[in-house]
């Protein structure tokens, strides 16, 4: 298991290096660090001097090594618009996005597992058919449309829920602004997290159902029945634990995709998170901020996938054995 974890971490580092190359490429192609630092009202000679001083005339590989070294130390450049270190700007917005993704994931887990299992166990039941039809409709509606429909119904027509912003937040641990601890914050979270989960939820219901159905056909499930076990134990332990493996794998990847969808969701709901800032950075050609976003999101993505793989190893005994070698 230890060797397995080490190998996964090595892979993660490799992926981060690739991300750094992409980030660096964007930065050196379209970015202008001199402008980021001093703005545009500076003479050409001064600019040239500053370029030399910043090492912008060095060979690209040297610049890249410097970029990575700085990045590892938490320096991802300076935001032109905010006049602050880019990483600081991003991290300040991270809690909003993370809480949104967490809430959506929670919705996905809480609904996809029971519905998926039910639909696999009772495929001909009326509700199974209903959920399956709804899930097809669900995947085919774009997130922004779902968001707008939800806003129209619950905010505009019914006035039950707010349609934009995070509401009241509370600062915890000295740096984390959370909306999870106030009633107002929670209310603001409802519509955005439903919208964000609207693509993944149907996908996961279908995935769990398909995997579960396959598992239910296996000999070991028939054997479990022949042993006289209770159906609840057969479904929830014997079958579901085997269903979980492929679901975890796909889940890790989809979580990353969800971060991409936060850009859309946050924009529609004016949710002041990383995705919202990212889109603003694109509009303002704030290259450093944009690259910082890519690196931070890439890092989260890699981190999540590594953790998911380790969890997979814990659930799947065969992986543990290969890791032991």
């Amino acid at each position: 298991m230890f060797a397995f974890i080490v190998r996964r971490i090595a892979q993660a580092v490799l992926v981060m290096l690739v991300i750094s190359v992409i980030g660096f490429a964007i930065k050196s192609a379209v970015g202008d660090p001199v402008r980021d630092l001093v703005g545009i009202a500076v003479s050409v000679e001064e600019r040239m001097a500053l370029r030399e001083e910043l090492g912008l005339n060095d060979p690209l590989p040297v610049q890249w090594v410097r970029f990575v070294t700085n990045a590892v130390q938490g320096d991802l450049g300076h935001s032109y618009f905010f006049k602050k270190p880019a990483l600081e700007v991003i991290l300040k917005k991270a809690p909003a996005t993370i809480e949104l993704v967490l809430c959506s994931s929670l919705i996905i887990v809480l609904f996809s597992i029971p519905i998926g299992i039910f639909a696999a166990v009772k495929p001909n039941n009326f509700f199974s058919r209903l959920f399956m039809s709804l899930s097809i409709v669900g995947v085919s509606i774009p997130v922004f449309l779902t968001a707008i429909i939800l806003i129209y119904i619950f905010a505009v027509e019914l006035h039950w829920l707010p349609s934009y912003g995070r509401g009241d937040t509370v600062r915890i641990w000295g740096f984390w602004d959370t909306g999870l601890l106030t009633w107002d914050g929670l209310k603001h979270l409802v519509l955005p997290s439903i919208s964000l989960s609207s693509i993944m939820l149907p996908l996961f219901i279908r995935l769990i159902r398909a995997e579960m159905k396959e598992v239910l056909e296996t000999d070991y499930i028939k054997f479990a029945k022949a042993k006289g076990l209770k159906l609840s134990r057969i479904y929830l332990l014997h079958a579901f634990k085997n269903t979980l493996l492929p679901v975890i794998t796909v889940g890790g990847v989809q979580l990353g995709t969800m971060i991409a969808f936060t850009v859309l969701t946050e924009t529609v709901f004016q949710w002041q998170g990383m995705g919202f800032i990212f889109l603003e950075a694109v509009e303002r050609s704030d290259t450093s901020l944009l690259v910082a976003y890519l690196v931070v999101v890439g890092f989260i993505f890699v981190l999540v996938n590594t953790v998911v793989d380790v969890i997979y190893g814990l659930v799947n005994p065969t992986v543990r054995i290969t890791g032991r070698k």
């Binding site: 000999d219 054997f223 479990a224 029945k225 042993k227 085997n242 659930v315 005994p317 065969t318």
Partner: peptide
């Protein structure tokens, strides 16, 4: 269910498939 495994047990053909892998 009370008969299966308690009064009548079954042994299947392929032991590689009969036991739950996890």
């Amino acid at each position: 269910r009370k008969v299966r495994g308690e009064k009548i047990s079954m042994i299947f053909q392929d032991p590689m498939m009969t036991l739950n892998p996890v």
